[in-house]
Computed example of a mutant assay.
Amino acid sequence: MSLDSTLSWPVSLQALIQQLKDIRQPTQDGLRQGLARCEIKASDLTPWATPHHSPTDSYGRMLVWHGGHVEVMVMTWLPGDYSAIHDHGSALWGAVQCFGEARHQSFELQGNLISRKAEQPFAPQQIRVIESGLIHQMGNPGQSTFLSLHIYGTSSPCSKITGSARIFNVPEGCIQTTDGGVFFDLPEEQVLSCRTGLTADRQLQQEQNDLLQQRRAKAERA
């Protein structure tokens, strides 16, 4: 995407793009501090907000900028929106700045068993670095909609930086891959591959199944 197309954007986002366009392998501290220096506000992201996203989508997502080796996206989280448990495909590094109080959990996969690693909730304005191989889940347990800014990068040009992201579909006991949103109840045409045999403890199975049923209920009411 041409830098000329960003000239009408908020100054904070222009500053971010200028930082990202030449970065290939940033340090965690450098990425976190660089994003903080941009002083991005939630209002700067409203042109990319999707508060009326389809109820079949687990959250709203909109591409802001693709620079070949890095992409910037805005996610919209309505009350009750949750991503599926997932990783980030081809992305090697990244960061998230959240503009609301999000639930955030990390997970680890050992063989076919996926288990909760840590609860790491987001506070408003907080920035977290995305490490290569991170498996996590974000969601909005509150009553107010908020946005989050996501940066995903690689060391060389890639058209689908988060392509072939894995979804750890606990309710159905499988690992799916997709090039799109990491949603619950992903439509069959968006599933690139599916491997069965995924297991989890009873508590995690119940929690993820509850989130799946809540998403289906929203879709049915629409």
Results as ranks from 00 to 15, higher is better:
residue 35 L to N: 06
residue 54 S to V: 05
residue 79 P to E: 04
residue 29 D to P: 01
residue 159 S to E: 14
residue 95 A to M: 02
residue 123 A to I: 00
residue 103 R to W: 04
residue 138 M to V: 13
residue 110 Q to L: 04
residue 38 C to P: 09
residue 112 N to H: 13
residue 43 S to A: 12
residue 114 I to P: 08
residue 143 Q to H: 08
residue 150 H to A: 00
residue 50 T to E: 15
residue 42 A to S: 14
residue 86 H to I: 09
residue 72 V to Q: 00
residue 117 K to S: 12
residue 154 T to N: 07
residue 33 Q to S: 12
residue 86 H to T: 02
residue 91 A to V: 02
residue 127 I to G: 04
residue 83 S to C: 14
residue 119 E to S: 14
residue 93 W to Q: 06
residue 143 Q to F: 01
residue 108 E to I: 07
residue 80 G to A: 08
residue 66 H to F: 04
residue 160 K to V: 02
residue 76 T to K: 10
residue 104 H to P: 11
residue 113 L to P: 01
residue 49 A to M: 08
residue 113 L to W: 08
residue 124 P to N: 09
residue 141 P to Y: 06
residue 96 V to S: 02
residue 38 C to E: 03
residue 37 R to D: 10
residue 82 Y to N: 09
residue 60 G to N: 10
residue 133 G to F: 00
residue 57 D to P: 01
residue 66 H to W: 09
residue 43 S to T: 14
residue 71 E to F: 01
residue 62 M to H: 12
residue 32 R to G: 03
residue 99 F to A: 08
residue 132 S to W: 01
residue 125 Q to G: 04
residue 109 L to V: 10
residue 79 P to D: 01
residue 78 L to Q: 15
residue 67 G to T: 07
residue 128 R to E: 08
residue 158 C to P: 01
residue 31 L to Q: 10
residue 64 V to L: 13
residue 84 A to N: 13
residue 121 P to M: 06
residue 112 N to Y: 09
residue 57 D to F: 02
residue 106 S to E: 11
residue 118 A to M: 08
residue 29 D to C: 03
residue 78 L to Y: 00
residue 65 W to D: 05
residue 147 L to F: 01
residue 84 A to K: 03
residue 76 T to C: 09
residue 152 Y to M: 12
residue 47 P to E: 10
residue 52 H to T: 11
residue 44 D to Q: 12
residue 135 I to R: 07
residue 156 S to E: 15
residue 84 A to P: 00
residue 146 F to K: 08
residue 147 L to S: 09
residue 80 G to E: 06
residue 66 H to G: 07
residue 97 Q to T: 03
residue 150 H to I: 02
residue 120 Q to E: 15
residue 145 T to V: 10
residue 44 D to H: 13
residue 62 M to T: 14
residue 108 E to N: 07
residue 50 T to V: 09
residue 142 G to H: 04
residue 60 G to S: 08
residue 90 S to K: 15
residue 126 Q to C: 03
residue 62 M to R: 14
residue 125 Q to V: 01
residue 140 N to I: 10
residue 94 G to S: 03
residue 152 Y to C: 03
residue 136 H to Q: 12
residue 78 L to W: 00
residue 119 E to Q: 11
residue 115 S to Q: 14
residue 116 R to M: 12
residue 42 A to I: 00
residue 145 T to G: 04
residue 129 V to A: 08
residue 159 S to N: 14
residue 53 H to M: 11
residue 155 S to Q: 14
residue 162 T to F: 00
residue 162 T to E: 09
residue 100 G to T: 06
residue 49 A to L: 01
residue 29 D to H: 11
residue 63 L to E: 14
residue 36 A to I: 06
residue 39 E to I: 00
residue 78 L to N: 15
residue 118 A to C: 05
residue 106 S to K: 05
residue 41 K to G: 00
residue 52 H to L: 13
residue 45 L to W: 07
residue 90 S to I: 02
residue 64 V to Q: 04
residue 59 Y to V: 06
residue 129 V to H: 06
residue 87 D to I: 06
residue 138 M to F: 00
residue 142 G to A: 10
residue 93 W to F: 11
residue 54 S to A: 15
residue 64 V to R: 00
residue 158 C to T: 15
residue 159 S to W: 05
residue 119 E to K: 07
residue 126 Q to Y: 08
residue 147 L to C: 10
residue 94 G to E: 07
residue 124 P to D: 03
residue 138 M to S: 12
residue 52 H to S: 13
residue 151 I to Y: 04
residue 30 G to T: 08
residue 55 P to C: 11
residue 114 I to V: 14
residue 149 L to N: 07
residue 126 Q to P: 13
residue 75 M to K: 11
residue 59 Y to H: 07
residue 29 D to E: 14
residue 58 S to I: 04
residue 135 I to S: 05
residue 120 Q to L: 15
